[in-house]
Design a protein around this nucleic acid. Structure first.
Lengths: 114, 114
DNA sequence: ACCCATAGCTAGGATTACTACCTATCCATT
DNA sequence: AATGGATAGGTAGTAATCCTAGCTATGGGT
């Protein structure tokens, strides 16, 4: 596994939802958006992206529809109303989570008040 | 599983190492330090903490020794030299990881320069 | 006498990202 | 014409790790 794999767990869904918040996209484009938007850090294999999208669709957070562009079939996804709500919640959740970790990671101990 | 469970995956080790950076501690005290230091957010079950400490010890990042305090046996852990190095690397890694996620989560799309 | 906090432990379950593999079209290079 | 890469989709099975649920044991409070 990639080293980043475990770190990403539980945070991939928000990233996918956030990407779709910029407008409907198909899976491959989402994968590229994450890669480019992260400076290459999140260059996820398709075996990660597609199953995750299926999961989000099953959960009713995104909805997909087939189309054909340049002879290639595409499945374009967009956020549902639920997906928008979920995204808002998860964004807030991330901020709190990140703040908590960052605080704990600050070098300590702090000087005890006397 | 707790909802936070997946989010924490891959980040627990840094938290444990960072806690031990404040001085040697035993498992139960580490658990409490994480709970209190996170405002209750990371109130981890012992079934999470102890196996993680064993993992870190096997990896040579911390070293433990038994002692008895008030009739209760304790296993006190401290960072090894490798553990200190690992902590420094993981701290830097967290900053980059968090920055990448936060950037991707910012509402977009940004206005395209013309 | 009982329960809770403290202190440690483990087996098995649940979740999720990854590896490795597959199909197919279009385009550029050989 | 043929080959390979980029695009676009997919799946089955593996690895990693956090949690649940259970256990032993001591000390202090009600």
């Amino acid at each position: 596994m990639r080293a980043e794999a475990q770190a990403l767990k539980g945070h991939l869904d928000v990233l996918l939802l956030a990407t779709l918040n910029d407008g409907p996209q198909h899976g491959y484009a989402i994968k590229e958006a994450l890669r480019d938007g992260s400076g290459g850090r999140f260059d996820l294999p398709t075996g990660t992206v597609y199953p995750a999208l299926h999961r989000l669709e099953r959960a009713g957070l995104i909805s997909g529809s087939w189309s054909v562009v340049d002879g290639r079939r595409r499945r374009t996804y967009q956020l549902t109303a639920e997906g928008h709500k979920k995204l808002a919640g998860e964004r807030a959740n991330w901020r709190e989570f990140a703040a908590a970790i960052t605080t704990l990671l600050e070098p300590g101990p702090w000087p005890t008040a006397t």
